[in-house]
């Protein structure tokens, strides 16, 4: 435990020194508040562009607060995920290729504590980013669009965060033996494939972690009547498998190739 804590502090210090702990939350905040702002001013934006068909403006309705919030969280599924994955891809691969892991692993440290510390540090960054981002999005949505249930916002953000955490954990697993960019590419591809497969067979595969974003939007739309436990359990299992696999692979691959 003593070593795990020291390793975690080292990871967080790196996040601060490399500004990762600043720029990732900043991007999440910008993405989050863009959605309510754009939705609110869409009518004005269209009015300023001269060639809008005459009938269009009259039929335009301002979207509901809950759907704007769901769209804001939806931003995190694409650009947000990309940024988190890029921020994670070098956490094991970088130590291996630069050679710092050779010095680290010559110390009496277990590879599971190294991986667990990295995972927890990335988890911390993710929680801070999505916490601040969702808070910003919710604040502007409430100011511009109307009331939201804070409980639903927190639940929906949590479900979305769990899905993003799956992608981050996959990246950590792949970076235990692949190069950073390859690890990022593979985990993004896998996340995309999971979403696609789930999209094709939504009823049969609603236990998959990929159904978490849909569930998150559902919580905002109807207050959480459609929440099931299965995707949460499968996501947690996936994450545990990723951490275990990453520890196993990191224990074997200690040296720069």
């Amino acid at each position: 435990m003593r070593r795990l804590w020291a390793l975690y502090l080292k990871e967080m210090l790196e996040s601060v020194r490399s500004y990762k702990l600043i720029w990732i939350p900043v991007v999440f905040i910008v993405l989050g508040i863009m959605q309510p702002l754009v939705s609110f001013y869409m009518a004005d934006i269209l009015a300023f562009s001269s060639n809008v068909p005459a009938g269009l403006m009259e039929n335009m309705e301002r979207p509901a607060a809950s759907s704007v919030m769901a769209q804001a969280l939806g931003q995190y599924g694409t650009i947000g995920m990309l940024i988190l994955v890029l921020g994670t891809m070098n956490s094991l691969a970088g130590e291996r290729s630069s050679g710092t892991s050779e010095l680290l692993m010559a110390k009496p440290v277990s590879s599971i504590s190294v991986v667990a510390a990295k995972w927890t540090a990335n988890f911390t960054v993710l929680v801070i980013a999505i916490g601040l981002g969702a808070a910003g999005a919710a604040y502007y949505t409430v100011q511009l669009m109307g009331a939201l249930s804070w409980r639903d916002v927190i639940a929906a953000s949590g479900l979305y965060a769990l899905w993003l955490l799956c992608a981050v954990s996959l990246t950590l697993l792949f970076s235990a033996w692949l190069r950073g960019p390859a690890a990022a590419g593979l985990s993004l591809l896998l996340a995309a494939v999971m979403s696609l497969v789930h999209g094709l067979l939504p009823v049969k595969l609603n236990w998959m972690p990929a159904s978490l974003p849909g569930m998150s939007a559902g919580v905002l739309a109807d207050g959480g009547t459609g929440v099931s436990l299965a995707p949460i359990v499968s996501a947690v299992l996936l994450i545990i498998i990723c951490i275990a696999g990453a520890s196993l692979m990191a224990g074997r691959n200690k040296l720069p190739v």
Partner: peptide, 13 residues
Amino acid sequence: LGYLPQAPAFYNW
């Protein structure tokens, strides 16, 4: 054990 590799790499930050 104390170990020093041929080209030790540190955390430069």
